[in-house]
Design a binder for these strands. Structure first.
Length: 725
DNA sequence: AGCACGCCGACT
DNA sequence: GTCGGCGTGCTC
């Protein structure tokens, strides 16, 4: 498709052809401030350019641009238009406006800045995950930027914050060939809460939220245009409960005329949520944003949001930056799930992104989960958010009966059950439950390295060099040290000299085999990350699943067996207990209630096997909040995260040491290190209070910038790293 | 990463 | 006196 608009956009202002006299620049707001694509920390600041007259109309805040910078052409985003640049700086002309689409809204930019600051990273690193890569063809498809002009006529000279993408002073050729509205079913209509009808949005019609203490008030506040903040642990035993609950909150926010955003951990949860949304409000009335949808669909959906064609966005972690117009409510589901953490620098977590964003945009925030993260508990403790609590009566009505099978575990003499590491109580319950419906068996992920013990005396196997715990490496099948990685060939027990380790590392597949023998004539299937299974029928079967991959049963599981608690608990780490409880709660939530509800079968039972532990007691009481609160209290006493904040600095020994010394922190920042890591690398850990967080990360950023300017090797900095302690 | 500017040494 | 080596630092 030949497009007469593109050449003029892309050619931009040609540097070489300096015409007689000064090249014409835009008459109004001739200076464009640009965020450039640079990996160098000391260039992580805006630079100003002159706007050539011919780019004036397109050079609006939020568009992608190309600029000449230090002899090379760089990509960037135009952040604002100004009357003057810094005095005494010679400005270069803007190179080109890549596309008139406004892809970076002012509040999203402000959020990205706050995230970069909070994680001591560069703005561009954050923007890379906030704005999906451009797919040029998608922009031409249907409903161009001109559509927005039609529905939302901009003023003669849009102010900086106005998202109106195209200045009407320039004839827009798109206006002629692009039909307004939609002929291909992509944009049925702009979704305004008014279109949805009152039956969906009346706060009195938030029955699920209203079941929680303060929930009805929360919904009413949202509908009234206020911005409350809340943490909620979802009541178990109601398949499909959480998507409906979150939708109620989102619709309440929509009713106030504001947009809503729901962020879920992974594609599976997103599929569940979308199924409900399709059913309740229709596929065209919300937008999903997920990196797993592929580049082109992702950008297509992103554009729908950027053009303001929706007021409900759902997606995975990057959707936390979705440019929802007038955001009224941000929701994060299951914030304890590790998928919410971005795996690339600056490793930001979707919960923290939404926290910052809700403050910047004055939006409401809802942190909802099957369990409770220590961070979410902190929000309650500090009175930043209120807790929407399920009453004990509500819990009792819906929670399954939880049985802790700790004592009989070791006395289990039945070889079949022993092989399947099934306590007799678990076997009994499963046998009974199979007469009434499906049974879920949660086993540890294969990648979850269990600590090994001597097969004869049960002494835990330790590394001969560093006394770290030995674990089985799936790839090699040989035990190796979990700390130093040394392969323990020819291991023998330090206590009794026995040479065999207790068999461990049983994946879901082997559990399927063992259970098949323990339960003849029962259908046994596996559901793992590699072989996902979304739904299971309401028929008797054993479903073996790894944490996070549990399929949903239509009317809940008759029983849920949590088998690998000890293996999961044996992992070293500060947050192991919390993680294990969250995994258990996630699975236990899929069980039927013990009492049953109208139209729902009862008799649901959860059997948790393993040594007695705090997480196990919390599961029995079905109270993740109390557990998180106790943990947080303990961490505060010990000065450990997330009661305090941490930062990690790693790099070549000399540079890292010099850097930490130059930080010049006083006693209020605890310093641990250096720890030798790899080839001549040093690792330092910093512990500091939340109050000092901004000051510490600011110092980390500025010092890193000056080190980078001085051509020192770039240091790895991670703020609040997970899984280090 | 490139490009300017600068200080010093070599050559017309 | 002018040209050009590449070393340090800035890049709107």
């Amino acid at each position: 498709m030949s497009d007469p608009l593109q050449p003029s956009l892309l050619a931009g202002f040609d540097l070489g052809s300096t015409l007689p006299g000064t090249p014409k620049t835009a008459e109004q707001l001739p200076v464009a401030r640009v965020v450039i694509d640079s990996a160098l920390p000391h260039l992580d600041r805006p630079f100003d350019y002159l706007v050539p007259a011919e780019l004036d109309a397109f050079a609006q805040p939020g568009v992608r641009v190309k600029v000449r910078f230090g002899g090379q052409e760089l990509a960037g985003f135009l952040s604002e238009r100004l009357e003057h640049g810094e005095p005494g700086v010679k400005l270069q002309p803007l190179g080109a406006v890549v596309s008139p689409e406004v892809v970076l809204s002012a509040p999203v930019l402000a959020t990205a800045r706050a995230v970069a600051e909070r994680y001591a990273g560069t703005l561009w690193d954050v923007l890379r995950s906030a704005v999906p890569p451009r797919m040029a063809r998608v922009e031409k498809e249907t409903g161009t930027a001109a559509e927005a002009t039609e529905t939302n006529p901009p003023e003669t000279n849009p102010p900086a914050a106005d998202p109106g993408p195209v200045d009407p002073r320039v004839p827009n050729r798109h206006a002629d060939d692009a039909p307004v509205g939609d002929q291909h079913g992509l944009h049925p209509h702009s979704v305004d809460s008014r279109d949805l009808g009152p039956s969906h949005v009346d706060p009195l019609h938030s029955p699920l939220l209203a079941e929680y203490d303060g929930g009805a008030h929360f919904a009413a506040e949202l509908a009234a245009g206020n911005s409350p903040r809340a943490v909620l642990s979802a009541v178990p035993n109601r398949p499909g409960h959480w998507p409906a609950l979150l939708l109620e909150a989102a619709l309440a926010a929509n009713e106030s005329g504001r947009g809503a955003l729901i962020v879920v951990p992974d594609a599976r949860d997103l599929a569940r949520l979308c199924t409900l949304l399709d059913e309740r409000i229709g596929a065209g009335n919300y937008v999903r944003l997920s990196a797993e949808d592929g580049q082109t669909p992702r950008y297509r959906n992103f554009l729908r949001v950027a053009r303001g064609n929706t007021n409900l966005v759902v997606g995975t972690r990057n959707a936390a930056f979705a440019p929802v117009k007038d955001l009224g409510l941000a929701i994060i589901w299951d914030d304890a799930d590790t998928s919410h953490a971005e795996p690339r620098a600056p490793y930001h977590h979707a919960r923290e992104v939404l926290l910052l964003r809700s403050e910047i945009e004055n939006a409401a925030l809802l942190v909802a989960a099957p369990g409770r993260s220590a961070e979410a508990q902190r929000l309650i403790r500090s009175n930043w958010a209120l807790e929407l609590r399920a009453s004990r009566a509500l819990l009792r009505a819906h929670a399954p009966r939880v049985i802790a099978a700790s004592d009989e575990f070791e006395q289990n003499r039945d070889p079949l059950l022993h092989a399947a590491r099934l306590p007799a109580a678990a076997w009994r319950e499963a046998k009974r439950a199979l007469e009434r419906g499906p049974v879920l068996v949660q086993v540890a992920r294969t990648g979850f390295m269990p600590a090994l013990r001597c097969e004869r005396c049960r002494t835990s196997a330790r590394c001969t060099k560093c006394t770290g715990p030995l674990a089985l490496d799936d790839a090699r099948g040989a035990p190796s040290c979990g700390w130093c990685g040394l392969v323990a060939a020819g291991w023998s027990c330090a206590e009794c000299g026995f040479m065999r380790l207790r068999a461990a590392s049983i994946g879901a597949d082997r559990t399927v085999e063992e259970l098949g023998r323990a339960f003849p004539n029962v259908n046994v299937v596996a559901a793992t990350g590699a072989k996902p299974l979304h739904h299971v029928p309401d028929a008797p079967a054993l479903i073996v699943a790894t944490p996070g991959a549990e399929p949903v049963a239509e009317h809940g599981y008759a029983a849920v067996l949590l088998l690998d608690g000890d293996r999961m608990m044996s992992r070293e780490g500060l947050r192991t207990g919390e993680e294990v409880l969250n995994r258990w709660m996630g699975a236990a939530q899929l069980a039927r209630g013990h009492e049953g509800a109208p139209g729902m079968p009862g008799g649901g039972t959860v059997v948790v096997a393993g040594e007695p532990s705090e997480p196990m007691r919390a599961l029995v009481r079905f109270d993740a909040g109390a557990y998180a609160d106790a943990e947080l209290g303990e961490r505060r006493v010990l000065g450990l995260p997330p009661a305090v904040r941490t930062a990690l600095v790693r790099g070549p020994a000399a540079t890292a040491d010099k850097f930490v010394a130059a930080l010049g922190f006083g006693d209020d920042v605890r310093l641990h290190g250096p720890v030798l890591e790899g080839e001549g690398e040093h690792r330092w850990l910093l512990f500091y209070s939340y109050a000092q967080g901004p000051a510490v990360t600011r110092k980390l950023r500025t010092l890193r910038a000056s080190f980078s300017a001085a051509k020192e090797p770039i240091l790895a900095i991670r703020v609040d790293p997970d899984g280090i302690l």
